[in-house]
Design a protein around this nucleic acid. Structure first.
Length: 417
RNA sequence: CGGGGCGUGGCGCAGCCUGGUAGCGCACCUGCAUGGGGUGUAGGUGGUCGGAGGUUCAAAUCCUCUCGCCCCGACCA
């Protein structure tokens, strides 16, 4: 991508509305723009990051044996009446009427829809266990949206649901999802912790939350130094009472949550199938969420410096920034830069070429703000000596690379994950 | 919803108290110079001052209503 063509504008100053660092940096780097309270547009740069996160999640979910589907965002009220959540859910549920005055809501979650699907499609125990997931826009009319994409009303979520003949099967899938989540957050390069959680009003039994550790986290998690015990604060108070205050504590951003739902939905929505004896049994369920868009903000909260964002490799919108010095005056340099740029593209390097007629300092600052992990600087001096200059975003040191070795060098650098 | 604050070019702000028809920095466009850490210089584009109503010869400024946004508290990926 040529930066001159990218729809983006870096800002020197953050809009006054932004409070936390991830929100400020996302606005300054030109990743998102606000449309209304808790509702954002993703600009090209931000959307690339979001898609990177999505891709990792999709790959690992598929590896786990889950199947991807896409459910409607708009859901009929009848289903929510069946589960009795139409009355329970409160104003957070965005209710809408169609032209016939029939009632619908914009889905904040999809237990009802998936349960309805499965009760229609699944007839036999041979189809189980079944794990279905989707990556989709959700809407929750939060009392108070805040912190940009961190707690927005509209957000991107990966939600998965599993269906089982019995509790043992549910337990196995639950464990599988636990390890899948661990793989996902590890691949995304996040410092996180899984904790025991209270299953809250979604209902059900066993539950874990996955928290990205960050000072600005809205949740308090606690853990024991002497054992494996780690939980959110609410759960610790339930489990341990006053003893809970003796635990170590940290701040976290909840990015994932897995639940064993049991029969909460399958029972009231009559979701049955035949077991091996031809007997009709009620399915047992699990559900597994990841806040896809929230991960982007959480990653920035955890990884930034005074210059800007420091993307974990797997999330970076571009791997390499190619910065020419004085290209607009030197024809031979411009030709060499364009030639290298094309070779990088041919080698599938995710490169962004700063072809603007800007001073070097501006280009450096912008690339650091955006958080591109690797940088090549190409100058006339370099052209004379046959070298290009390499620098990593987080390492304060330059390295000269022979131009003919540049492709191999950066391939090596970017393939290590 | 309760408490606090803010709406003035894309962003950050001043002007409002004490009405006289809008200004600064950044960004953007053009020229010249510059060319390794947000360069200098000259010129330029862009604003019904959130909206409606009222007071007045005259409203960004005063009054009334309204809409939006942000922060603090109770909910959640």
């Amino acid at each position: 991508m040529k930066l001159s063509q990218l729809l983006t504008a870096t800002l020197r100053e953050a809009p006054a509305d932004a409070e936390i660092i991830s929100h400020k940096l996302m606005l300054r780097a030109g990743m998102i723009r606000q449309l209304a309270a808790g509702i954002y547009t993703w600009l090209p740069l931000g959307y690339r990051v979001l898609k990177k996160v999505e891709a990792v999640i999709r790959e690992e979910m598929n590896n786990s044996g889950a199947q991807e589907i896409l459910m409607p965002a708009i859901q009929p009220a009848e289903l929510w009446r069946e589960s009795e959540r139409w009355d329970q859910y409160g104003p957070e549920l965005l209710r809408i009427n169609d032209r016939h005055k029939r009632e619908f809501c914009f889905g904040p979650t999809h237990e009802e829809v998936i349960t309805d699907l499965v009760r229609r499609e699944v007839r036999s125990y041979k189809q189980l266990p079944l794990i279905l997931y989707q990556i989709q826009t959700k809407f929750r009319d939060e009392i108070r949206p805040r912190f940009g994409i961190m707690r927005s009303r509209e957000f991107l979520m990966k939600d998965a649901y599993s269906f089982h003949l019995n509790d043992q099967s549910l337990e196995e899938t639950y464990e599988k999802m636990y390890s899948t989540y661990t793989k996902i957050f590890n691949r995304l390069g996040l410092n996180f912790r899984a904790v025991i959680a209270d299953s809250g009003n979604i209902g059900g039994d066993k539950s874990h939350e996955f928290h990205v550790l960050a000072e600005s986290g809205e949740d308090q998690i606690v853990f024991s130094k002497n054992s494996d015990y780690a939980s959110n604060l609410e759960r610790a108070l339930i489990d341990l009472g006053e003893e809970a205050h003796k635990l170590e504590s940290a701040r976290g951003i909840e990015v994932g949550h897995i639940f064993q739902l049991g029969k909460k939905y399958s029972k009231c929505m009559k979701t049955n199938c035949l077991d091996e004896h031809g007997k009709s049994i009620t399915l047992t369920m699990g559900c597994y969420g990841i806040g896809v868009s929230r991960i982007v903000a959480a990653a920035i909260e955890q990884n930034n410096d005074e210059k800007g964002i420091i993307w974990p490799i797997a999330m970076a919108p571009y791997q390499l920034a190619l910065i020419p010095v004085n290209m607009h005056k030197s024809v031979r340099l411009r030709e060499a830069v364009i030639s290298l740029y094309k070779k990088l593209l041919d080698n599938n390097i995710e490169v962004i070429l700063d072809d603007r007629n800007e001073r070097p300092g501006v280009m450096f600052s912008d690339m650091e703000l955006i958080g591109v992990p690797h940088r090549f600087v190409f100058s006339e001096k370099g052209l004379d000596s046959g070298e290009i200059e390499y620098k990593e975003r987080t390492i304060n040191e330059n390295k000269n690379i022979k131009i003919e070795k540049a492709i191999a060098f950066i391939k090596e650098k970017t393939s290590s994950f």
